[in-house]
Design a protein around this nucleic acid. Sequence first.
DNA 1: ACTGATGTTGACAATCATTATCAATAGACC
DNA 2: GGTCTATTGATAATGATTGTCAACATCAGT
Lengths: 150, 150
Amino acid sequence: MKRNTWQREAVREALDGTGGFISAQALHSALHASGSPIGLATVYRALGDLASTGEADSLQSPDGEALYRACSTTGHHHHLICRNCGLTVEIAADEVEAWAKRVAGEHGFTGAAHVVDVFGLCADCTAAQRGADERRADATANGSSSSHPA
Amino acid sequence: MKRNTWQREAVREALDGTGGFISAQALHSALHASGSPIGLATVYRALGDLASTGEADSLQSPDGEALYRACSTTGHHHHLICRNCGLTVEIAADEVEAWAKRVAGEHGFTGAAHVVDVFGLCADCTAAQRGADERRADATANGSSSSHPA
DNA sequence: ACTGATGTTGACAATCATTATCAATAGACC
DNA sequence: GGTCTATTGATAATGATTGTCAACATCAGT
Ligand SMILES: [Mn+2]
Ligand SMILES: [Mn+2]
Ligand SMILES: [Zn+2]
Ligand SMILES: [Zn+2]
């Protein structure tokens, strides 16, 4: 059966004490910094377990790193994530749930799951960046710095 | 300035000739198999360029691989992807666009982008799997094989 | 509390996708 | 054709994640 170890508890607590999403590597560093001798492989295993039981959410960062976050809401939900500071807001999305189910069905798909995450700049980071932008409003004549999300 | 090379064209065509999403590695293999001596690094570069100009969509597979697909629709859109055969349907989602914008605004977020993809089993793969399931309906007493998407 | 079976750990090696190097090559323009 | 330089590609380097396996710790049974 599944045994209780201080390692798993340490990971759970460290994750709880983290505001937004964090990588396995970063969480391991944080644990080490706070004096814990936990192994890296164990952190990976613990995070994987938490994610598979629904106690944590996981998502794939744009550069291919797996990120984890303690899940406060028990049910199914999605995230609004600050791409600068990592602040994460959990959001319900009934409309989107219905939409996903419907569009899958319309195309004959079964066992539909979905990935729905919104990225942006939180209010604080927006304010901070606005200041920086004004400070260098001269060099760049080309204003297009946008990306091409799908 | 940007130069035209047969390599970039080869990648574009290979991607066009692919039904669903494909990884850089797989596309490189496919090109080699068809006799092209193109280098792996070049495939990575070409795909990155296509994605950054919006000519291709990219998404991060659950196991952290970057997948690319030639984009038929020019505008913003999303995907319905068969997790078994890779068949991909491009879908417009005005509801979701509005929802994402609204929820971001409600929380003070700016510069909102979003990731919205639906995964499932396409009609064909569903039929194929149904056959396989019936053939082994005895060993497994535990029927829960579901995951915990966020 | 002791003990045995076995789930768990962690140092380390192994994978594997992706990126960085950098000398050789080949477009674009004259 | 000649020059300039963006591009290529073989290869090494990076970095996250997983596999290995002997040592260890948990816990049900006693
Ligand atoms: Mn969550
Ligand atoms: Mn697309
Ligand atoms: Zn922020
Ligand atoms: Zn399919």
